[in-house]
C-alpha cells in the first residue's frame, strides 16, 4: 500500500512529503520550495514546525527553486531550478535531485530554458519539465540524466504531469492557453488542446481517465477526457478565483485548488464537478500550490506572500495552522516514502 500510494502521489506537483516507517505508522515530511531564498524548507507535520532547510544555491536572488515532484519510492525530491531571467537560458536552469535521506543534492540535470515545474513518471524512470523560456517540454532518463526528447509547447510553458499509466505527458502553456499532449513512449506530440485562459497546473485523476487544468485568468478548471485528449467540461470557480496549483485527495474524490489571487482553496467534488468547500479563513496570502497528505487528513498550501505553509484539517475543511517557511514560498509537496 505504501509504494502504491507513493506512486500515485508522485504525479502531483508541489509538496513533497516523505514517510518514515511502516505503512501502519505513516510519518511524513513536507517540503516547501522558497523562490527568493533559494532553498527548500523541511517541515515536520507532527510538530508543524520547520525542522531545517536544504540549500539549493548560495545565490538567493539569482537562483530560484520552484516546482517540485517526488520519486515513486519517495527517496528523491526533484526541484525545478532556474534564474530570474524568464526569456533566456542560463547555466542555472536545471532539475536538481535531492536525496532525502541525506538531505543533499544527489544529481543535477542540465535543463535549460527556465524550468518552472517538473513531473516524474510513475515508474520513476522519466523526468519531465516545462521550460518556460523556450516554450518546450523536455524529458530525461532519470537514471542517466540523458535527454530523451524536447518538444515545442505553447508560449510560457508551466505545468507538467505524467499520466498514471506513464503513457502521456501534459504540458500547459500560460500565454497560448493550451495544453500539449506528448506520447512519452513514442516520444512525439499527439495534440494541442485549448483550455481556459492562462493555464497553470495540470493533474491526472487517480484512475487516469481525466485530467484537470487550472486557468488563472479564466477562473476555471478544464476537465479533459484523457483517452481522447479532449476538454469535455469546464468547472467555473468564478472570475476572481485565480486557480493555480492543485492536488487530489488519495481517493481521488476531492480536488483541492489553490486560489492564488483570492487567498482561498477551492475543494471540488470530482464526482459532481461542483465546488464543495471554499477555505479562506486564516489562509496564508497568495496560496500558489497545495498538496494533500497521504492519508488525506491534511492539506498544505505554499503561500508566496506570507512566506508560509498553511495547514488545512480536511475533517473541518478549515485552516488549523501556519508554518513559517522561506521567502516567496512557491511550491509544496507531500509524498510518502517507504523507509525500508
Amino acid at each position: 500500500m505504501t509504494i502504491a500510494i507513493a506512486r500515485q502521489l508522485a504525479r502531483t506537483a508541489a509538496v513533497v512529503v516523505l514517510a518514515a516507517g511502516t505503512a501502519q505508522a505513516q510519518g511524513y515530511r513536507v517540503y516547501a520550495s522558497n523562490e527568493y531564498d533559494a532553498n527548500v524548507t523541511v517541515i515536520d507535520p507532527d510538530t508543524q514546525t520547520a525542522t531545517g532547510t536544504i540549500k539549493i544555491s548560495g545565490r538567493p536572488g539569482d537562483v530560484r527553486p520552484r516546482g517540485m515532484a517526488v520519486s515513486p519510492d519517495g527517496k528523491t525530491v526533484y526541484i525545478s531550478v532556474s534564474d530570474f531571467l524568464p526569456k533566456t537560458e542560463t547555466p542555472e536552469d536545471a532539475i536538481v535531485a535531492i536525496d532525502v535521506d541525506r538531505n543533499e543534492v544527489a544529481h543535477t540535470y542540465r535543463a535549460g530554458g527556465n524550468p518552472e515545474r517538473v513531473a516524474i513518471s510513475p515508474d520513476g524512470k522519466q523526468i519531465w519539465a516545462a521550460l518556460e523560456a523556450t516554450a518546450q517540454g523536455v524529458g530525461f532518463d532519470a537514471a542517466t540524466g540523458a535527454e530523451l526528447a524536447k518538444f515545442p509547447t505553447g508560449v510560457e510553458s508551466e505545468g507538467v504531469v505524467v499520466s498514471p499509466d506513464g503513457r502521456f505527458v501534459y504540458v500547459t502553456a500560460e500565454t497560448s492557453h493550451t495544453v500539449t499532449v506528448i506520447d512519452a513512449q513514442k516520444l512525439k506530440v499527439v495534440a494541442h488542446l485549448l483550455v481556459g485562459n492562462r493555464p497553470r497546473d495540470v493533474v491526472f485523476a487517480r484512475d487516469g481517465t481525466r485530467a484537470y487544468v487550472s486557468a488563472e485568468i479564466g477562473g476555471t478548471i478544464s476537465v479533459v477526457d484523457a483517452s481522447k485528449h479532449k476538454v469535455v467540461k469546464t468547472i467555473n470557480l468564478g472570475l476572481d478565483s485565480r486557480p493555480v496549483g492543485m492536488d487530489l485527495s488519495p481517493d481521488g474524490k476531492l480536488l483541492y485548488v489553490a486560489g492564488g489571487g483570492t487567498s482561498a482553496v477551492y475543494v471540488i467534488d470530482t464526482t459532481t464537478d461542483k465546488v464543495a468547500h471554499v477555505i479562506k479563513e486564516k489562509m496564508g496570502r497568495r496560496p500558489w500550490a497545495v498538496a494533500v497528505s497521504p492519508d488525506g487528513s491534511r492539506a498544505y498550501t505554499a503561500n508566496g506572500l506570507s512566506d508560509s505553509v498553511s495547514v488545512i484539517d480536511t475533517s473541518c475543511m478549515c485552516v488549523t495552522g501556519q508554518i513559517a517557511a522561506g521567502r516567496g514560498t512557491h511550491s509544496v509537496r507531500v509524498g510518502l516514502v517507504d523507509a525500508n
Partner: peptide, 20 residues
Amino acid sequence: SPDPEQAEAPAQQLVGLLEG
C-alpha cells in the same frame, strides 16, 4: 528586484480587483 517579473503578479491582481 532580482525578479524581473515582480510587478506582474500585483499588476494582474489589481486588474482582477478592478473587474469586480
